[in-house]
Amino acid sequence: MLKLSLSDRVFRIVNHLFLALMAFLCILPMVHVLAVSLSSDYATTSYLVKFWPIGFNLDAYKTALDSNNFIVAFKVSVLRTLGGTLLTMFLTMLAAYSMSKDDRYFKGRTLYAWFFVFTMLFHGGLIPTYLVVQKSGLTNSIWALILPVAVNVFNVVLMMNFFRGIPKELEEASMIDGAGHFRVLFTIFFPISLPSIATLSLFTMVFHWNSWFDGMIYMNQADQFPLATFLQALIAGFDYTKIGLNPSDLEQLSERSLKSALMFIGIFPILLVYPFFAKVLR
């Protein structure tokens, strides 16, 4: 690189500092959660823990990982995340590809677009949605966690825009060579849009991993709950109006370390997966 001017240098330094500061601020709460999860009961109850564990112990993690329910739920979550993401990305790509074509080429495209956007904004409400899933016989099966959420219009719109940015000449050239739509999609569009596909895949995976409500309403047996459903019940705080109704509710209050540990465990897989995506994004 050629020599940098002074203003460039200053900018670079300030920029780096600023970015580093922001990144640091972003990581602080995670550090706090981790510290709480590794601290003793007393320290957490008295809200003494800031960024470093007090009374270091691994009890919370031991308790969390030791239970059958946890491991099964973990597996369910992994299954739905991987399966759901694959299915979603496949369907999204198909939809985005079609939608990215021009109006003249694909008649009625705008109609479909409005249709999709409409569904993004208007929901049937909890009970009709539940009824649809139930009557389709999907309850108590993992498909209830994958199918109803398989197509996310937000993602379709984003990917559609990415696809539109691809030069038409590429497509036309390969079609002259005799490629059909599927070929074009998978051999040309896919590689070029890899950064955006990777991004959307990541978002989808995060969505699946953190989805807890669908697990709660569609599943009836403990071995079918995704991890997030269990965690939500613990983390979501305490309904004071019901004290005395269920003694185990009080237990929840007293187990901040356990809550934090569970939260951290819930996030950990995402943290692991993220660097791989970051590679693709570059």
């Binding site: 780096h16 970015l19 580093a20 922001m22 990144a23 640091f24 972003c26 990581i27 709460p29 995670m30 959660v33 995060v206 953190n210 983390i235 939260m263 996030i267 995402i270 943290l271 993220y274 660097p275 970051a278 590679k279 994004l281 570059r282």
Partner: peptide, 16 residues
Amino acid sequence: FKRTVQSLVYLPHFIN
């Protein structure tokens, strides 16, 4: 540096 910052700024999203 870029990749690190990128990963870190996404973290707050995960916290309840």
